[in-house]
């Protein structure tokens, strides 16, 4: 059947739209902007940690003062509207309420427009929660840097740390680093065995050639 001309016209318009490329340097500008923002976020996060420390110190001092007052400076003969226990409870600093971060920071179902998360810094990684990619990348970068310096023990320690993370997404990269670390640490047989296993389990991985080079 001959295609509808209107459909063809529409298809051509969309094709023209698809083929449009961003201006020269747009990608590099986006990378640069993102890196700047990331650097700012890191320094901002450090600052907010410092601020939080000061806050808790101040809260602890206030609490200590309140306890001291209740125990030693309680007015005599006065009728208190509140039982003693409630004074103590009121004196106790309450932890600041924090929004509970959603497991998935992606926009909400109902309103994509209101889906951008707040600018509050993300919570520190919790061991029981799956590791974030940044955590994983951090551990692998440490391992890689140590390997580059010839410090195989430090590399293996970083990889052990990686192995303890939950929900790993970069396991293949970690395995390859471990193979390399064992190989350089003189544990060639162990490296070879793991490399064989890697090749068998990840035949389609782009890392498979590199792994194969460690197989004896």
């Amino acid at each position: 059947m001959k295609p509808d001309p209107i459909d063809q016209l529409g298809a051509r318009l969309f094709q023209a739209g698809r083929q449009e490329a961003p201006p020269d340097g747009a990608l590099a500008r986006a990378v640069a902007a993102a890196r700047r923002e990331q650097a700012n976020a890191v320094s901002g996060s450090r600052l907010s940690r410092r601020t939080a420390a000061i806050f808790w110190l101040a809260a602890a001092a206030l609490f200590a003062g309140a306890v001291f007052f209740v125990r030693n400076g309680e007015p005599t003969g006065g009728i208190s509207a509140e039982p003693r226990g409630s004074v103590e409870r009121q004196g106790a600093p309450q932890p600041p309420s924090r929004p509970v971060p959603a497991a998935d920071a992606a926009p909400s179902a109902t309103s994509l427009e209101s889906a951008i998360p707040s600018a509050a810094p993300p919570p520190a990684p919790v061991h029981s929660a799956p590791a974030t990619l940044t955590d994983e990348l951090g551990a692998l970068k440490r391992a890689s840097s140590a390997l580059a310096l010839g410090d195989t023990q430090a590399a293996l320690a970083a990889l052990d740390q990686y192995d303890r993370m939950k929900g790993q997404k970069l396991r293949a990269e970690a395995t390859l680093l471990r193979i390399e670390a064992w190989s350089r640490a003189g544990q060639g047989d162990r490296a070879s065995a793991l490399a064989k296993q890697f090749v068998a389990q990840n035949p389609g991985s782009p890392l498979v050639d590199r792994a194969r080079s460690f197989v004896k």
């Binding site: 923002e37 990331q38 920071a105 993300p122 990684p125 974030t132 990619l133």
Partner: peptide, 8 residues
Amino acid sequence: ARKIESIN
């Protein structure tokens, strides 16, 4: 970049 740590 700000939220990368919480993006799966």
